[in-house]
Design a protein around this nucleic acid. Structure first.
Lengths: 195, 195
DNA sequence: GCGTTAGTGGACATGGTGTCCATGATGTTG
DNA sequence: CAACATCATGGACACCATGTCCACTAACGC
Protein backbone atom coordinates (compact mmCIF):
# COMPACT_ATOMS: atom_id res chain seq x y z
CA UNK A 1 0.00 0.00 0.00
CA UNK A 2 1.24 3.46 -0.84
CA UNK A 3 0.99 6.65 1.19
CA UNK A 4 -2.59 6.59 2.45
CA UNK A 5 -4.86 9.55 1.92
CA UNK A 6 -4.74 11.75 5.02
CA UNK A 7 -8.32 12.95 4.67
CA UNK A 8 -9.75 9.51 5.21
CA UNK A 9 -11.33 9.06 8.65
CA UNK A 10 -9.71 5.70 9.13
CA UNK A 11 -6.32 7.17 8.46
CA UNK A 12 -6.79 9.99 10.92
CA UNK A 13 -8.08 7.63 13.54
CA UNK A 14 -5.19 5.23 13.11
CA UNK A 15 -2.57 7.95 13.30
CA UNK A 16 -4.10 9.56 16.34
CA UNK A 17 -4.37 6.24 18.11
CA UNK A 18 -0.76 5.46 17.36
CA UNK A 19 0.45 8.82 18.68
CA UNK A 20 -1.48 8.39 21.88
CA UNK A 21 -0.24 4.85 22.32
CA UNK A 22 3.33 5.97 21.75
CA UNK A 23 3.07 8.49 24.55
CA UNK A 24 1.60 5.95 26.90
CA UNK A 25 4.26 3.36 26.24
CA UNK A 26 6.92 6.03 26.31
CA UNK A 27 5.93 7.09 29.78
CA UNK A 28 6.06 3.51 30.98
CA UNK A 29 9.19 2.18 29.34
CA UNK A 30 11.33 5.08 28.15
CA UNK A 31 12.38 5.60 24.59
CA UNK A 32 14.95 2.87 24.07
CA UNK A 33 12.74 0.18 25.53
CA UNK A 34 9.80 1.18 23.39
CA UNK A 35 9.37 -0.85 20.22
CA UNK A 36 7.02 -0.56 17.31
CA UNK A 37 5.52 -3.80 18.58
CA UNK A 38 4.63 -2.31 21.94
CA UNK A 39 3.05 0.73 20.40
CA UNK A 40 0.96 -1.32 18.00
CA UNK A 41 -0.15 -3.68 20.77
CA UNK A 42 -1.19 -0.74 22.91
CA UNK A 43 -2.93 1.00 20.06
CA UNK A 44 -4.52 -2.26 19.00
CA UNK A 45 -3.34 -1.65 15.49
CA UNK A 46 -1.72 -4.10 13.13
CA UNK A 47 2.00 -3.74 12.88
CA UNK A 48 1.83 -3.75 9.11
CA UNK A 49 -0.54 -0.83 9.37
CA UNK A 50 2.06 1.10 11.31
CA UNK A 51 4.51 0.90 8.46
CA UNK A 52 2.03 2.24 5.96
CA UNK A 53 1.98 5.47 7.98
CA UNK A 54 5.37 5.86 9.58
CA UNK A 55 8.85 4.72 8.76
CA UNK A 56 9.74 3.93 12.37
CA UNK A 57 9.08 5.05 15.91
CA UNK A 58 11.13 8.19 15.47
CA UNK A 59 9.06 9.20 12.52
CA UNK A 60 5.94 8.78 14.61
CA UNK A 61 7.19 10.88 17.49
CA UNK A 62 8.54 13.60 15.29
CA UNK A 63 5.20 13.82 13.53
CA UNK A 64 3.92 15.21 16.82
CA UNK A 65 6.60 17.88 17.12
CA UNK A 66 4.73 20.10 14.73
CA UNK A 67 1.96 20.34 17.30
CA UNK A 68 4.43 21.64 19.86
CA UNK A 69 5.73 24.19 17.45
CA UNK A 70 2.26 25.42 16.75
CA UNK A 71 1.36 25.59 20.42
CA UNK A 72 4.45 27.68 21.04
CA UNK A 73 3.58 30.10 18.29
CA UNK A 74 0.07 30.55 19.62
CA UNK A 75 1.32 31.13 23.14
CA UNK A 76 3.98 33.49 21.86
CA UNK A 77 1.68 35.73 19.87
CA UNK A 78 -0.78 35.87 22.79
CA UNK A 79 1.68 37.82 24.94
CA UNK A 80 4.07 40.73 24.66
CA UNK A 81 6.93 39.31 22.68
CA UNK A 82 8.99 42.44 22.91
CA UNK A 83 11.64 40.60 24.83
CA UNK A 84 14.13 38.56 22.86
CA UNK A 85 13.93 34.78 23.20
CA UNK A 86 10.32 34.98 24.26
CA UNK A 87 9.82 31.38 23.21
CA UNK A 88 11.43 30.38 26.49
CA UNK A 89 8.38 31.10 28.59
CA UNK A 90 6.08 28.99 26.47
CA UNK A 91 8.54 26.15 26.25
CA UNK A 92 9.20 26.10 29.96
CA UNK A 93 5.55 26.25 30.84
CA UNK A 94 4.79 23.55 28.34
CA UNK A 95 7.54 21.39 29.79
CA UNK A 96 6.22 22.05 33.26
CA UNK A 97 2.71 21.10 32.32
CA UNK A 98 3.77 17.90 30.59
CA UNK A 99 6.76 17.28 32.77
CA UNK A 100 6.72 13.50 32.66
CA UNK A 101 6.25 13.43 28.93
CA UNK A 102 9.01 15.93 28.30
CA UNK A 103 11.25 14.04 30.60
CA UNK A 104 10.66 10.87 28.63
CA UNK A 105 11.09 12.59 25.30
CA UNK A 106 14.17 14.73 25.76
CA UNK A 107 15.56 13.50 29.08
CA UNK A 108 18.28 11.07 29.91
CA UNK A 109 16.30 8.05 28.76
CA UNK A 110 15.53 9.51 25.37
CA UNK A 111 16.93 8.65 21.97
CA UNK A 112 19.50 10.63 20.11
CA UNK A 113 17.53 11.33 16.99
CA UNK A 114 14.72 12.74 19.06
CA UNK A 115 17.07 14.97 21.02
CA UNK A 116 18.65 16.01 17.75
CA UNK A 117 15.32 17.12 16.40
CA UNK A 118 14.40 18.93 19.54
CA UNK A 119 17.66 20.82 19.54
CA UNK A 120 17.11 21.68 15.92
CA UNK A 121 13.75 23.09 16.91
CA UNK A 122 15.47 25.26 19.49
CA UNK A 123 18.11 26.40 17.05
CA UNK A 124 15.43 27.43 14.58
CA UNK A 125 13.43 29.32 17.17
CA UNK A 126 16.47 31.14 18.48
CA UNK A 127 17.82 31.97 15.07
CA UNK A 128 14.53 33.65 14.18
CA UNK A 129 14.79 35.72 17.32
CA UNK A 130 18.39 36.76 16.90
CA UNK A 131 18.46 37.34 13.18
CA UNK A 132 17.68 41.02 13.75
CA UNK A 133 20.43 41.60 16.29
CA UNK A 134 23.47 40.85 14.19
CA UNK A 135 24.48 40.23 10.59
CA UNK A 136 24.44 36.66 9.38
CA UNK A 137 27.76 34.89 9.70
CA UNK A 138 29.70 32.50 11.85
CA UNK A 139 29.42 34.73 14.89
CA UNK A 140 25.65 34.72 14.79
CA UNK A 141 25.59 30.99 14.09
CA UNK A 142 27.87 30.31 16.99
CA UNK A 143 25.78 32.41 19.35
CA UNK A 144 22.58 30.74 18.25
CA UNK A 145 24.01 27.30 18.92
CA UNK A 146 25.56 28.47 22.15
CA UNK A 147 22.23 29.63 23.50
CA UNK A 148 20.33 26.64 22.15
CA UNK A 149 22.70 24.22 23.83
CA UNK A 150 22.60 26.16 27.05
CA UNK A 151 18.82 26.23 27.09
CA UNK A 152 18.56 22.57 26.25
CA UNK A 153 20.93 21.44 28.98
CA UNK A 154 19.31 23.77 31.44
CA UNK A 155 15.93 22.30 30.60
CA UNK A 156 17.12 18.73 31.03
CA UNK A 157 18.75 19.61 34.32
CA UNK A 158 15.52 21.16 35.45
CA UNK A 159 13.43 18.19 34.34
CA UNK A 160 15.79 15.84 36.14
CA UNK A 161 15.95 17.77 39.37
CA UNK A 162 14.29 16.05 42.34
CA UNK A 163 12.88 19.32 43.68
CA UNK A 164 12.84 21.63 40.66
CA UNK A 165 12.59 25.39 40.74
CA UNK A 166 9.25 26.89 39.83
CA UNK A 167 8.97 27.56 36.10
CA UNK A 168 9.07 31.30 36.50
CA UNK A 169 12.37 31.14 38.31
CA UNK A 170 13.88 28.95 35.68
CA UNK A 171 12.79 31.38 33.03
CA UNK A 172 14.26 34.27 34.98
CA UNK A 173 17.48 32.39 35.44
CA UNK A 174 17.75 31.66 31.76
CA UNK A 175 17.18 35.26 30.79
CA UNK A 176 19.61 36.56 33.40
CA UNK A 177 22.32 34.25 32.12
CA UNK A 178 21.59 34.94 28.48
CA UNK A 179 21.10 38.71 28.54
CA UNK A 180 24.84 39.49 28.57
CA UNK A 181 25.38 37.08 25.72
CA UNK A 182 22.91 39.05 23.67
CA UNK A 183 24.60 42.31 24.60
CA UNK A 184 27.88 40.89 23.37
CA UNK A 185 26.23 39.85 20.13
CA UNK A 186 24.73 43.29 19.56
CA UNK A 187 28.04 45.01 20.26
CA UNK A 188 29.80 42.68 17.91
CA UNK A 189 27.24 43.50 15.25
CA UNK A 190 27.68 47.24 15.71
CA UNK A 191 31.46 46.96 15.76
CA UNK A 192 31.44 45.17 12.44
CA UNK A 193 29.13 47.68 10.87
CA UNK A 194 31.35 50.63 11.92
CA UNK A 195 34.86 49.24 12.08
CA UNK B 1 34.18 -17.02 32.48
CA UNK B 2 34.25 -14.24 35.08
CA UNK B 3 35.95 -10.85 34.95
CA UNK B 4 39.34 -11.63 33.40
CA UNK B 5 42.55 -10.53 35.10
CA UNK B 6 43.61 -7.23 33.58
CA UNK B 7 47.32 -7.91 34.04
CA UNK B 8 47.28 -10.81 31.62
CA UNK B 9 48.91 -10.00 28.27
CA UNK B 10 46.13 -11.68 26.36
CA UNK B 11 43.56 -9.53 28.11
CA UNK B 12 45.38 -6.30 27.39
CA UNK B 13 45.88 -7.27 23.78
CA UNK B 14 42.22 -8.19 23.32
CA UNK B 15 40.94 -4.99 24.86
CA UNK B 16 43.31 -2.79 22.92
CA UNK B 17 42.41 -4.54 19.68
CA UNK B 18 38.71 -4.12 20.35
CA UNK B 19 39.08 -0.41 21.10
CA UNK B 20 41.01 0.16 17.91
CA UNK B 21 38.53 -1.84 15.90
CA UNK B 22 35.66 0.11 17.38
CA UNK B 23 37.18 3.37 16.26
CA UNK B 24 37.79 2.06 12.76
CA UNK B 25 34.27 0.79 12.34
CA UNK B 26 32.89 3.91 13.97
CA UNK B 27 34.60 6.12 11.41
CA UNK B 28 33.22 4.05 8.60
CA UNK B 29 29.65 3.43 9.69
CA UNK B 30 28.73 5.85 12.44
CA UNK B 31 27.55 4.81 15.86
CA UNK B 32 24.09 3.46 15.22
CA UNK B 33 25.19 1.30 12.32
CA UNK B 34 28.04 -0.19 14.31
CA UNK B 35 27.28 -3.54 15.92
CA UNK B 36 29.22 -5.73 18.27
CA UNK B 37 29.47 -8.14 15.38
CA UNK B 38 31.22 -5.64 13.15
CA UNK B 39 33.70 -4.71 15.83
CA UNK B 40 34.54 -8.31 16.58
CA UNK B 41 34.92 -9.13 12.91
CA UNK B 42 37.25 -6.20 12.42
CA UNK B 43 39.21 -7.03 15.54
CA UNK B 44 39.27 -10.69 14.60
CA UNK B 45 38.05 -11.56 18.05
CA UNK B 46 35.36 -14.03 19.00
CA UNK B 47 32.08 -12.44 19.87
CA UNK B 48 31.83 -14.43 23.06
CA UNK B 49 35.18 -12.97 24.03
CA UNK B 50 33.78 -9.47 23.65
CA UNK B 51 31.15 -10.13 26.27
CA UNK B 52 33.69 -11.34 28.81
CA UNK B 53 35.23 -7.86 28.71
CA UNK B 54 32.45 -5.41 27.95
CA UNK B 55 28.74 -5.34 28.47
CA UNK B 56 28.01 -3.75 25.09
CA UNK B 57 29.43 -1.35 22.57
CA UNK B 58 28.76 1.64 24.78
CA UNK B 59 30.74 0.10 27.58
CA UNK B 60 33.63 -0.39 25.21
CA UNK B 61 33.62 3.19 23.98
CA UNK B 62 33.23 4.68 27.40
CA UNK B 63 36.19 2.64 28.64
CA UNK B 64 38.24 4.89 26.37
CA UNK B 65 36.85 8.12 27.80
CA UNK B 66 39.18 7.91 30.76
CA UNK B 67 42.09 8.36 28.37
CA UNK B 68 40.61 11.61 27.13
CA UNK B 69 40.14 12.85 30.63
CA UNK B 70 43.75 12.08 31.51
CA UNK B 71 45.02 13.76 28.36
CA UNK B 72 43.05 16.86 29.26
CA UNK B 73 44.47 16.97 32.76
CA UNK B 74 48.02 16.66 31.47
CA UNK B 75 47.47 19.41 28.92
CA UNK B 76 45.80 21.57 31.50
CA UNK B 77 48.57 21.38 34.07
CA UNK B 78 51.18 22.07 31.38
CA UNK B 79 49.87 25.59 30.82
CA UNK B 80 48.80 28.61 32.81
CA UNK B 81 45.43 27.57 34.12
CA UNK B 82 44.77 30.88 35.77
CA UNK B 83 41.85 31.49 33.49
CA UNK B 84 38.57 29.88 34.41
CA UNK B 85 37.34 27.08 32.14
CA UNK B 86 40.84 26.38 30.95
CA UNK B 87 39.79 22.89 29.94
CA UNK B 88 38.29 24.41 26.83
CA UNK B 89 41.60 24.88 25.06
CA UNK B 90 42.64 21.28 25.53
CA UNK B 91 39.27 19.94 24.52
CA UNK B 92 39.05 22.06 21.41
CA UNK B 93 42.56 21.21 20.32
CA UNK B 94 41.91 17.58 20.98
CA UNK B 95 38.74 17.72 18.97
CA UNK B 96 40.58 19.51 16.19
CA UNK B 97 43.33 16.94 16.10
CA UNK B 98 40.93 14.00 16.04
CA UNK B 99 38.20 15.77 14.21
CA UNK B 100 36.75 12.81 12.37
CA UNK B 101 36.74 10.67 15.45
CA UNK B 102 35.12 13.33 17.59
CA UNK B 103 32.57 13.92 14.92
CA UNK B 104 31.67 10.25 14.91
CA UNK B 105 31.57 10.04 18.68
CA UNK B 106 29.64 13.12 19.72
CA UNK B 107 28.27 14.42 16.42
CA UNK B 108 24.93 14.04 14.78
CA UNK B 109 25.44 10.38 13.97
CA UNK B 110 26.32 9.44 17.52
CA UNK B 111 24.34 7.57 20.13
CA UNK B 112 22.55 9.14 23.02
CA UNK B 113 24.30 7.28 25.83
CA UNK B 114 27.64 8.35 24.46
CA UNK B 115 26.55 11.95 24.19
CA UNK B 116 25.16 11.69 27.68
CA UNK B 117 28.48 10.55 29.06
CA UNK B 118 30.37 13.21 27.20
CA UNK B 119 28.11 15.91 28.54
CA UNK B 120 28.54 14.52 31.99
CA UNK B 121 32.28 14.80 31.50
CA UNK B 122 31.82 18.46 30.59
CA UNK B 123 29.58 19.09 33.55
CA UNK B 124 32.16 17.59 35.89
CA UNK B 125 35.02 19.60 34.45
CA UNK B 126 33.07 22.84 34.59
CA UNK B 127 31.79 22.24 38.08
CA UNK B 128 35.35 21.80 39.33
CA UNK B 129 36.26 25.10 37.74
CA UNK B 130 33.31 27.07 39.03
CA UNK B 131 33.06 25.65 42.52
CA UNK B 132 35.28 28.45 43.83
CA UNK B 133 33.24 31.25 42.28
CA UNK B 134 29.95 30.77 44.01
CA UNK B 135 28.37 28.86 46.86
CA UNK B 136 26.89 25.48 46.06
CA UNK B 137 23.19 25.54 45.26
CA UNK B 138 20.74 25.55 42.42
CA UNK B 139 22.18 28.72 40.96
CA UNK B 140 25.63 27.21 40.62
CA UNK B 141 24.17 23.97 39.27
CA UNK B 142 22.14 25.82 36.72
CA UNK B 143 25.12 27.84 35.56
CA UNK B 144 27.28 24.76 35.26
CA UNK B 145 24.73 23.02 33.10
CA UNK B 146 24.11 26.17 31.12
CA UNK B 147 27.77 26.47 30.19
CA UNK B 148 28.21 22.76 29.60
CA UNK B 149 25.29 22.67 27.19
CA UNK B 150 26.49 25.78 25.44
CA UNK B 151 30.00 24.40 25.02
CA UNK B 152 28.70 21.06 23.81
CA UNK B 153 26.42 22.51 21.18
CA UNK B 154 29.09 24.94 20.09
CA UNK B 155 31.52 22.07 19.68
CA UNK B 156 29.09 20.02 17.62
CA UNK B 157 28.31 23.02 15.46
CA UNK B 158 32.00 23.53 14.92
CA UNK B 159 32.63 19.88 14.10
CA UNK B 160 29.77 19.92 11.62
CA UNK B 161 30.70 23.13 9.88
CA UNK B 162 31.89 22.67 6.32
CA UNK B 163 34.60 25.33 6.68
CA UNK B 164 35.19 25.52 10.44
CA UNK B 165 36.88 28.35 12.26
CA UNK B 166 40.42 27.77 13.44
CA UNK B 167 40.52 26.25 16.91
CA UNK B 168 41.94 29.36 18.54
CA UNK B 169 39.04 31.44 17.26
CA UNK B 170 36.51 28.98 18.56
CA UNK B 171 38.17 29.07 21.94
CA UNK B 172 38.16 32.86 21.91
CA UNK B 173 34.53 32.87 20.91
CA UNK B 174 33.58 30.53 23.70
CA UNK B 175 35.39 32.58 26.32
CA UNK B 176 33.95 35.84 25.01
CA UNK B 177 30.43 34.46 25.22
CA UNK B 178 30.94 32.86 28.60
CA UNK B 179 32.83 35.61 30.42
CA UNK B 180 29.72 37.64 31.23
CA UNK B 181 27.99 34.52 32.49
CA UNK B 182 30.80 34.05 34.97
CA UNK B 183 30.57 37.67 36.03
CA UNK B 184 26.90 37.22 36.73
CA UNK B 185 27.65 34.13 38.76
CA UNK B 186 30.29 35.92 40.85
CA UNK B 187 27.99 38.84 41.48
CA UNK B 188 25.22 36.53 42.48
CA UNK B 189 27.62 34.79 44.87
CA UNK B 190 28.69 38.06 46.49
CA UNK B 191 25.14 39.30 46.75
CA UNK B 192 24.08 36.21 48.62
CA UNK B 193 27.03 36.39 50.98
CA UNK B 194 26.32 40.03 51.87
CA UNK B 195 22.61 40.41 51.44
C1' DG C 1 56.84 -27.52 32.49
C1' DC C 2 52.39 -27.36 34.61
C1' DG C 3 48.32 -25.68 36.28
C1' DT C 4 45.43 -21.92 35.43
C1' DT C 5 43.12 -18.75 32.74
C1' DA C 6 41.65 -16.64 28.35
C1' DG C 7 40.09 -17.10 23.58
C1' DT C 8 37.42 -19.78 20.05
C1' DG C 9 33.53 -20.64 17.39
C1' DG C 10 29.36 -22.52 17.00
C1' DA C 11 24.77 -23.45 18.93
C1' DC C 12 20.67 -21.69 20.93
C1' DA C 13 16.81 -18.91 22.49
C1' DT C 14 14.98 -14.47 22.14
C1' DG C 15 13.10 -10.56 20.09
C1' DG C 16 12.85 -6.81 16.94
C1' DT C 17 12.63 -5.19 11.97
C1' DG C 18 10.63 -4.35 7.56
C1' DT C 19 8.01 -6.40 3.70
C1' DC C 20 4.34 -8.85 1.51
C1' DC C 21 -0.20 -10.55 0.53
C1' DA C 22 -4.95 -12.40 0.65
C1' DT C 23 -8.85 -11.20 3.18
C1' DG C 24 -12.35 -8.59 5.35
C1' DA C 25 -13.92 -4.03 6.91
C1' DT C 26 -14.94 0.76 6.19
C1' DG C 27 -15.11 4.96 4.00
C1' DT C 28 -16.23 7.82 -0.22
C1' DT C 29 -18.39 8.96 -4.25
C1' DG C 30 -21.79 9.05 -7.88
C1' DC D 1 -27.81 3.27 -1.30
C1' DA D 2 -24.93 0.69 -3.84
C1' DA D 3 -20.56 -0.06 -5.93
C1' DC D 4 -15.95 0.71 -5.80
C1' DA D 5 -11.76 2.29 -4.04
C1' DT D 6 -9.08 2.41 -0.16
C1' DC D 7 -7.55 1.01 4.30
C1' DA D 8 -6.66 -2.27 8.18
C1' DT D 9 -5.62 -6.90 9.43
C1' DG D 10 -2.74 -10.57 10.94
C1' DG D 11 0.11 -13.97 9.85
C1' DA D 12 4.19 -15.48 7.33
C1' DC D 13 8.81 -14.70 5.94
C1' DA D 14 13.72 -13.52 5.75
C1' DC D 15 16.95 -11.08 8.16
C1' DC D 16 19.94 -9.49 11.71
C1' DA D 17 21.62 -8.54 16.28
C1' DT D 18 21.80 -9.77 21.09
C1' DG D 19 23.43 -12.26 25.07
C1' DT D 20 24.54 -16.78 27.06
C1' DC D 21 26.61 -21.24 27.18
C1' DC D 22 30.00 -24.86 26.60
C1' DA D 23 33.58 -28.06 25.23
C1' DC D 24 37.92 -27.40 23.15
C1' DT D 25 42.37 -25.25 22.33
C1' DA D 26 46.03 -21.85 23.01
C1' DA D 27 48.66 -18.82 25.75
C1' DC D 28 50.19 -17.02 29.97
C1' DG D 29 52.39 -16.69 34.75
C1' DC D 30 54.73 -18.74 38.17
Amino acid sequence: MKTPNASDRRVQRTRRTLREALIEVLLERGWEETSVQHVCDRADVGRSTFYTHFADKEDLLISGFEDLRKALRDQQSAQDSTRALSFARGMIEHAHEHRRLFHAIIGKRSGHVVQQRFRQLLVDLIREDLAALAPAGPHLDATVHYIAGAFFELLIWWLDAPRPLPPSELEQLFHRLTAPVLVALREHGRARRRP
